[in-house]
């Protein structure tokens, strides 16, 4: 959710459920069949690269050197996966990506929901100014901040051998800090949370206040449980974006220990670009978690993507 793309929430509610009209209400039998054929062809076109990825990962090098290629493997080489894990530490890359994506999600959900709640439901001096500033920050493209972000990391004072002025060492470069802190929160997550909190009724907080609950408890115990779907949505989008992120980890890490899976894939391809069965096995491993997550949590993803516009 880095883009200047916040979709007002109005349309989000209706997105998930496409009403199940009976097909014959809208199309006569033959027409419906034709449309289905077109859709199946389209879906297959979308899925063929994924299928090809998996099939390639299960072929032998000799089979891959054939032209025209076979579609299904002549011999299913499941051992390719073990060999891939031997060829490059994909297990480690996988773990790194998982740790980072999980941490980003936790930070975003905790800090983003607090900020969104404060902006939506508490009046304090300077609130409007802060909100407008967040909105302006939403619209900044990644590439307009990436160079100074890198410099901030490099010159982080008192880290990585840097002195108090940030000179002399490498700062946060090639550390977990650089991977976790800068990408930990986004203005768009705050904006989405604010919209969700704004949609809740006011009577609850008044009743809670009369009962003598403090603001943090009203936030944590009364309102936040009501926006669980929103938390799932923002959380999943954050996780997905973090898992798929490439440029930032590429810039701030050099050692293999800190490599995330997307960078690991790119490095593997550059070092060893003829072993397609291994490369496709690695790619499959990098892709499967998102595919599974998407299939199981489709509802939240779809709601989130419709709100956030684009990844």
């Amino acid at each position: 959710m880095t883009l200047p793309t916040i979709k007002a929430l109005a349309i989000s509610e209706q997105v998930t459920v496409v009403p199940r009209k009976r097909w014959f209400h809208h199309a006569k039998g033959r027409q419906a069949a034709l449309i289905n054929v077109a859709l199946i062809l389209g879906s297959v076109t979308m899925l063929v690269p994924f299928l090809w990825m998996v099939l390639t990962s299960l072929k032998s090098p000799a089979e891959l050197a054939q032209f025209p290629p076979t579609f299904f493997p002549q011999e299913w080489m499941f051992s390719n996966y073990a060999a891939t894990l031997d060829a490059a530490p994909f297990g480690l890359y996988f773990r790194n990506s998982f740790v980072i994506a999980t941490t980003h999600t936790l930070i975003t959900v905790v800090l983003g929901s607090m900020a969104g709640y404060a902006l939506a439901r508490i009046y304090f001096k300077g609130r409007e100014a802060i909100f407008l500033a967040f909105i302006a920050m939403l619209m900044i493209p990644t590439y307009t901040k990436i160079v100074p972000q890198f410099l901030l990391v490099k010159f982080m004072p008192l880290f990585g051998g840097n002195d108090i002025l940030g000179q002399g060492g490498s700062g946060w470069l090639d550390t977990w800090w650089a991977l976790i802190i800068p990408g930990g929160l986004s203005a768009s997550a705050i904006f989405l949370f604010r919209q969700f909190y704004l949609s809740l009724p006011k009577d609850l907080e008044e009743a809670a206040r009369i009962d003598g609950l403090g603001e943090f408890r009203i936030f944590a115990q009364i309102y936040t449980p009501l926006i669980k779907p929103a938390i799932a949505t923002v959380g999943l989008l954050t996780f997905q974006e973090s898992w798929n992120n490439f440029l930032w980890p590429l810039l701030v890490t050099t050692s293999s220990d800190l490599r995330v899976i997307q960078v690991g894939l790119a490095v593997f391809q550059q070092l060893d670009n003829t072993q397609w069965q291994y490369l496709m096995a690695g790619t499959t491993m990098a892709t499967v978690p998102m595919v599974v997550l998407f299939i199981f949590a489709q509802k939240y993803f779809i709601q989130g993507f419709t709100n956030a516009g684009i990844k």
Partner: peptide, 10 residues
């Protein structure tokens, strides 16, 4: 939903 890097690899 899948990573652009992975897709580009395919």
């Amino acid at each position: 939903v899948t990573a652009t890097v992975a897709i580009a690899m395919v």
